[in-house]
């Protein structure tokens, strides 16, 4: 099966200017050689801590941020070769839902105008637009009567519904969701998560779902890609990732995610230290300074992404050992 979205060796490098003279101080490899596929109707979750490059990757996929290198195929087209017109047409099929429903809606436009903007850009008549807007608002659990209201008249959850309706105009096949619920209250999060899942089933959407919440990802996603400092360190189907995480960073993330069970306190070891500066990434495997299992080779050379099981890729020199004895992986060396 050909993937809906096929990203190969994608890189986004930013020159960094520092100081009052804005002199070039180096290059941040925000995304560095990332390959991933999103298949029709599935949800691929992209997880990682702030600064790992997941949002930059999402923007690069939509060419909101021009990639520095790599290939980007969507619905069989090579996106990076498209001219402006063709790219505009392709953008109808790939849309984005943003994190902050307060900042991502223009406060001076009515909900109907926000949702209907895509119709205008792509040259629909006014009647087509109004009918489309009413349909979309109903689809996301609001009503046509909400079209005349301004964003500030809605609650946070309702605003995110408008953001989703905007993304669904013109029938996209891929929706990139950048932390779509993390700014919402817990009880509202569940409503939006359910809405996203329902829309996926009804419209056959594919999601590239960016999140830092591993519990949510486990619930919503089919496959997960874990990013650390611009690279994918592990890709796996949900079940195998949560049952037997193979990369020490994935293990650390899972261990650090608090459990609702008060009897499971401090059962895991939390990694020391913090994500290093992307301006001066560590040699070899970027995770080695924080990794309890690092060996000499980890400092010297970047491990390749190895396929250890069908659909389960890991970027770790010692992944073979963990795969052979998965229960060992959670026990830190030297404690």
């Amino acid at each position: 099966m050909t993937p809906l979205l096929d990203v190969a060796d994608l890189a986004v490098h930013f020159p960094v200017f520092r100081g009052p003279l804005r002199r070039k101080a180096g290059t941040v490899r925000a995304v560095d050689g990332v390959s991933l596929q999103v298949f029709r109707g599935e949800t691929l979750a992209l997880v990682g801590e702030s600064g790992c490059g997941k949002s930059t990757l999402a923007r690069a996929v939509l060419r909101l941020q021009e990639p520095s290198a790599g290939q980007l195929r969507f619905e069989g087209q090579d996106l990076l070769r498209l001219d402006r017109r063709a790219m505009k047409a392709a953008r109808r099929r790939m849309r984005m839902v943003f994190q902050d429903p307060h900042a991502s809606l223009n406060p001076r436009l009515r909900a109907g105008e926000i949702v209907g903007e895509a119709f205008d850009i792509h040259g629909c008549t006014r009647r087509e637009r109004d009918a489309g807007v009413a349909e979309l608002l109903t689809l996301v659990g609001l009503g046509p009567e909400h079209a005349a209201r301004f964003p500030h008249e809605f609650s946070g959850g309702q605003r995110q519904r408008i953001g989703i309706a905007r993304a669904l105009a013109l029938h996209p096949s891929l929706v990139v969701c950048d932390e779509p619920v993390s700014a919402l209250d817990v009880s509202v999060q569940a409503q939006i998560v359910n809405l996203l899942m329902e829309l996926q089933e009804r419209l056959g959407l594919s999601y590239l779902f960016i999140s830092h919440d591993l519990h949510l990802v486990e619930f919503i996603a089919d496959r997960v890609a874990v990013m650390y400092l611009g690279r994918i360190v592990e890709t796996a189907p949900i079940q195998s990732l949560y049952a037997a995480p193979l990369h020490p960073y994935t293990q650390a993330l899972l261990a650090a995610s608090p459990s609702i069970d008060p009897d499971r306190r401090h059962q895991h070891v939390v990694p020391d230290g913090e994500v290093p500066s992307p301006l001066s990434p560590p040699s070899g495997c970027a995770f080695h300074p924080r990794c309890p299992f690092a060996i000499a080779n980890c400092r010297a050379e970047m491990p390749p992404l190895l396929t250890l099981a069908p659909g389960h890729d890991v970027r770790c020199w010692r992944a073979g050992e963990w795969a052979a004895a998965p229960q060992r992986a959670a026990i830190p060396v030297g404690s």
């Binding site: 702030s50 830092h212 993330l253 650090a256 995610s257 608090p258 990694p271 020391d272």
Partner: peptide, 9 residues
Amino acid sequence: DVTIQAQIL
């Protein structure tokens, strides 16, 4: 972030 949250807790 979640690993930093665990450290701070």
